[in-house]
Amino acid sequence: MSGAGAPVLVTGGAGFIGSNLADRLASEGHAVIVQDALMREGVERNLAWLKSRHGGRITHLAADTRDRRAVDEAVREAQAVFHLAAQVAVTTSLTDPVEDFEINVQGALNILEAARRKGGHTPVIFASTNKVYGDLADVPLELAGDAYRPTDPALRVRGVSESRPLDFHTPYGCSKGAADQYVLDYSRSFGLPTCVLRMSCIYGPRQMGTEDQGWVAHFLIRALEGQPISIYGDGRQVRDIMNVADTVEAYMAAWRRIDRVSGRAFNLGGGPNNAVSLVQLIGYIEELLHRKVELSFSDWRAGDQRYYVSDPSAARRELALGESLDWRTGVAALAQWLAAERSAPPSRRERVEAVG
Rank of each mutant, 00 (worst) to 15 (best):
R198H: 02
R198K: 07
I202L: 02
I202K: 00
Y203Q: 00
Y203S: 00
M208T: 09
D212F: 07
Q213G: 05
G214T: 07
G214I: 07
V216M: 10
A217M: 10
H218Q: 09
H218P: 06
F219L: 09
L220E: 10
L220P: 06
I221Q: 09
I229A: 04
I231N: 10
Y232G: 04
Y232I: 08
G233P: 07
G233V: 11
D234N: 15
R236G: 02
V238E: 06
V238D: 05
V238C: 11
V238Y: 09
I241Q: 05
I241M: 10
I241S: 05
A245Y: 07
T247Q: 05
T247I: 03
T247F: 03
E249M: 05
M252F: 10
A254D: 13
R257E: 12
D259A: 14
R260D: 15
V261G: 02
V261C: 06
R264L: 11
A265S: 14
A265L: 08
A265K: 06
F266A: 03
N267S: 14
L268R: 01
P272S: 10
P272E: 04
P272W: 01
N273G: 09
N274T: 05
V276P: 02
V276I: 15
V276A: 07
S277W: 03
L278P: 00
V279F: 07
Q280M: 06
L281Y: 11
I282M: 09
G283H: 04
I285E: 03
E286C: 08
E287I: 07
L288V: 15
L289D: 12
L289R: 10
H290T: 14
H290I: 10
H290Y: 11
H290E: 15
R291T: 13
V293T: 15
V293R: 12
E294N: 14
S296P: 04
S296K: 13
W300H: 12
R301C: 06
A302K: 12
G303N: 04
Q305W: 05
R306G: 02
Y307T: 02
Y308Q: 11
Y308D: 06
V309M: 02
A314F: 09
R316F: 02
R317Y: 00
R317C: 00
E318K: 00
E318V: 01
L319D: 01
L319K: 02
L319V: 04
G322D: 00
E323H: 05
E323D: 14
L325M: 13
